[in-house]
Nucleic acid binder design. Structure first.
Lengths: 243, 243
DNA sequence: AAAATAATATGAGAAATCTCATATTTTTGA
DNA sequence: TCAAAAATATGAGATTTCTCATATTATTTT
């Protein structure tokens, strides 16, 4: 993926630098624990063991290929899941938001190829150390039921995205994406991220966006787009959704 | 999807006919239960409640949009997961094989859009009635741990397929698919199924297959293809896989 | 065994999407 | 604050993939 690819690589290698996650301690840690209590998700006193990790923008929570030592639960921020192919191609697989788990695959499966996870904003996670809590978690009915739900939704969502990606041209997928990520009537995701996520070239993404403007679905002003014809976008997006 | 689409629709509507699943009883039921014991997957005596359902080729185990009354565990046979879009387009999402669960989404989630599941060979399932066992299953640590593993693998697999589908042209995905489904050196999946699964038109699939023959990767004889250059196919497929 | 249906097959033009080249503007890091 | 890197932007030709048209061959149903 010509241009897009290079841009991504340089971006990512930059981020391999010396930044480091910060362990939040004492009072501040306590504040987070109180504000986002997750004790009801466990039947053992997990809060004793929880570390609070704070990551800056573009930091890696997990490096691709390295097994994490924690199960993470995101309480603030956004991150992206990346995966590198053998030919060096890098692809954005999904977004991670507050209330998502990270590292649950590694908790459950002995054998698992770990994907890379990079923050896209400042991100705060609860980090539950596996060496202390692994067995307790795997024997905790409340937690497992919770995790099972999370995973089933994740699997469903991926399945939907997968067949959607195969079955429809960018026009439909982009309409869907715009509606999902727009802030009110304003859409302003970064093109480089989006073309990565939707698996199309930068060039083509711009082409279809321009096309949307021409047709009056969007109006471009500076670096952002106003949604002008929501109905039409919903129609385009709807085609690719199921009941 | 012109031709392909029509072919599929007619195929599917035919299968909406009067066939019906058969409940296997008594001795035969007992035989299945003994041969494929799943009691170690549960900590309650699930076998009392299990029904054994037998489906013929092309029967629907679950109709799209209808919540099932059972959690199924496949013990013999193969099936396909389908999903219909609002514009009538139908897409094959995945294959189901022995030892897969069916209906776990509905067990876990109150709200879930049920996909259609159609057998492609004679298929035998254990059917665990939800109205009897739902609560017991959701409180069963052994079962939940098992299910969680299953779901995590499913989610991972979908994620891999998804990004693969976006990131590579048919050439790579088809090479992968051929290697995965070939019986020794012989490949003979039905084109209509394959183009559905890989999300490409029938025409294009044939085109790429012909291309593989031209280049000497495959040799066509009658209705099947011999793998002539496995290494090259692995190379093509490998590119799209991760460590 | 005949008729109907599904699957396979192939050509040709059109649409979607990619690659490459290159320029400008914005953001980031030293 | 200045240089480097990243993001945005646009044109043009090349590839991939789709649609439509139309035959032929297998399989299923009657």
């Amino acid at each position: 993926m010509g241009t897009g690819w290079c841009q991504r690589i340089t971006n990512r290698s930059r981020a391999l630098g010396v930044k480091a996650m910060k362990k939040v301690q004492k009072k501040e840690r306590q504040k987070y624990l109180e504000k986002h209590s997750i004790s009801e998700l466990f039947s053992f006193p997990v809060e004793e063991y929880i570390e609070v990790h704070e990551y800056r923008r573009d930091e890696w929570i997990i490096r691709e290929g390295m097994r994490p030592d924690y199960l993470y639960y995101v309480i603030e921020g956004k991150a992206k899941i990346y995966m590198t192919y053998q030919n060096g191609k890098v692809s954005l697989i999904n977004f991670i938001n507050a209330h998502d788990y990270i590292g649950e695959m590694e908790l459950l499966n002995e054998v698992y190829y770990t994907k890379g996870i990079q923050t896209s904003t400042k991100t705060v996670c609860f980090a539950i150390p596996l060496h202390h809590c692994r067995n307790q978690m795997l024997g905790d009915i409340i937690f497992l039921r919770e995790l099972t739900k999370f995973l089933s939704m994740k699997a469903t969502q991926m399945a939907a995205k997968y067949s959607q990606s195969l079955a429809f041209p960018l026009e439909n997928r982009l309409a869907d994406f715009i509606l999902q990520t727009a802030d009110g009537d304003i859409y302003r995701e970064k093109h480089v991220t989006v073309c990565d996520f939707l698996g199309v070239s930068y060039r083509h993404l711009l082409h279809v966006l321009a096309n949307f403007c021409e047709k009056g679905y969007l109006h471009k002003s500076g670096r952002q787009y106003w949604i002008e014809d929501r109905e039409r976008l919903q129609e385009l997006a709807g085609v690719s959704r199921n009941g």
